[in-house]
Simulated scan of single mutants.
Amino acid sequence: MYYAILAYHAEGVVESWTEEEDAALMAELLAVNDRLVGEKSLGPAARLGPTQRAVTLRGKGDGMITDGPFAETKEELLGFYVVDFPTLEAAVAAARDLRRANPTAVYEIRPILLYLPGAPLESRAAD
């Protein structure tokens, strides 16, 4: 079964890390990532940009664009992993490994009811 492991953190804390602190954390997370890839349990994973650069589309018809998400929360969704494990307990174990690498983050593990992998993307980032 596919599960989403959603990583939450206070953006202010993440943004306060030095480049070295962030690189060290990412090295630990990538070690877990590489192990899960080797076990053929990890699908797509993404680290999301700051909410200050996000927009939200809501409303009827074409909808209306507003700046950023406006959830009343102390933590923002900073990234996610898609994993494939036979049980919720196994997915929780993978999230615990991620938490050992990033102990100040919060991880939500949620079953995925529909998984469409889509096509591989090439970056079209603006210069």
Rank of each mutant, 00 (worst) to 15 (best):
V55C: 01
A101M: 04
T87Y: 14
V82F: 15
G63H: 11
A90M: 13
P111A: 03
Y107M: 10
G63I: 13
F85E: 12
E89R: 15
V106A: 05
E89N: 11
L77N: 04
I112Y: 03
E75V: 00
M64G: 08
D67G: 07
A94T: 01
E75H: 08
P103D: 03
T73Q: 09
R110C: 04
P69Y: 08
V83S: 13
Y81L: 12
L88K: 14
G61M: 00
T56N: 10
G68D: 05
R110Y: 06
L57E: 06
A105Q: 05
L113E: 14
K60F: 11
E72C: 04
G68F: 05
A71M: 04
I109G: 02
A91S: 13
R99S: 07
T56M: 12
V92T: 08
Y107R: 02
R53N: 10
I109F: 02
V55I: 10
V106F: 11
R53C: 00
K74Y: 03
A54G: 10
D84L: 12
A54V: 01
K74L: 01
A94I: 07
G59D: 03
F80T: 02
L113I: 05
R58D: 12
L78T: 09
G68M: 12
D62A: 13
R110W: 04
F80E: 09
L88S: 07
A54T: 11
R110S: 07
E72D: 05
P69Q: 12
F80R: 05
A95E: 00
D97V: 04
F80G: 11
V82E: 11
E89F: 10
V92W: 09
V83L: 15
T104M: 11
G68S: 15
V55T: 12
V82D: 06
A105W: 03
A91P: 05
E72N: 01
P111I: 04
P111E: 01
R53I: 10
M64Q: 14
I65W: 13
G79C: 06
R96P: 00
L113Y: 02
P86T: 10
F80V: 02
A101S: 09
T73H: 02
T104W: 12
D97N: 08
F70Q: 04
L98I: 00
A101E: 00
M64T: 14
A95K: 07
L57P: 03
E108M: 02
D67W: 04
A95G: 12
G59H: 01
K60H: 11
F70L: 08
Y81H: 09
N102L: 12
R100V: 15
A90G: 12
V82I: 14
L98S: 01
L57H: 10
A71P: 00
L113G: 03
Y107N: 00
Y81Q: 06
A71G: 03
P103H: 06
R110D: 06
L88A: 11
A91F: 03
Y107A: 06
V106T: 11
A90Q: 15
A105D: 06
A95I: 06
Y81F: 13
N102S: 07
T104H: 08
D62M: 04
L113R: 04
E75Q: 10
I112A: 05
L77S: 03
V82W: 08
T56R: 15
P86F: 10
